[in-house]
Amino acid sequence: MSERAPALELFRLQKTYPSPKGPAVIVKDFSLNLKRGEFVTLIGHSGCGKSTVLSMVAGLTSVTDGGIILEGRESTGPGPDRGIVFQSPCLLPWMSVFDNVMLGVEQVYFTASKTERRELAEYYLSVVGLGDAMKKSPGELSQGMRQRVGIARAFALQPKMLLLDEPFGMLDALTKIELQQVLLDLWRRNRLTTLMVTHDVNEAIYLSDRVVMMTNGPEATLGEILEIDFPRPRKREMVLNDPLFTAYRDHLVSYLTERSHQRNEPKTYTKENLLTFTSDPVAKDHTAAA
């Protein structure tokens, strides 16, 4: 297939749940294309439906209307061609770390020899820094280590794309920074098309090529798109100290605080036409207090 076709195409996705007061529309008319090897982050207020979109792409939530096309094929159910890292690592506690990764590897590489499969699982576990902990059970690991296993498990499937559902949401600040690095290192080697959900603005800017802002629910949809123009590989200090980073963050925060309830034609912003707060949020707080 051609290099220019999108790796993932979301076409007018809609999710409706039946409720006592009639159908509740969570997500409506959500359309987005991801280029091959692109890292896109969905950001929005909690409960806006960003996780629902991710879950629909994963095939774990049924699609009420619209379509998902992954690498030119309509995707209708879950499958190992999409590696998922959940917010909680979802490791099976009765299996060793190694067996948790092997469970997926055996499913995907059923034609490979036993040695090849073992090597693959071992490779990904050592890349995420768990070379010495493979025989341990998940219960013996810290939250951060468990999430490393979750990342290794997703990459070891060598999927067509990666889905990350607030993967660092439950970690402390330092562990979060460490794991963002682990993720970026792995991602650079594989260049997997990635769709991530987060509510951490800094994380979104640091990791993504594009940040997609969602409007508030119900009937949440695409609000704005922000293209992040930092060269890769990115260095954390460089990105954080760049004045552009602050400008990106102002744009995102001002969207979340001031524009996320509006419904306009989705517009793409780049570093040339960034928006910022219509009024100084600090000054506004002062007047509110007074």
Binding site: G59, G77, P78, P80, I84, F86, C90, L157
Partner: peptide, 8 residues
């Protein structure tokens, strides 16, 4: 979900 995703 793990079982579903891996198509066990």
């Amino acid at each position: 979900n793990v079982a579903k995703v891996l198509k066990l």
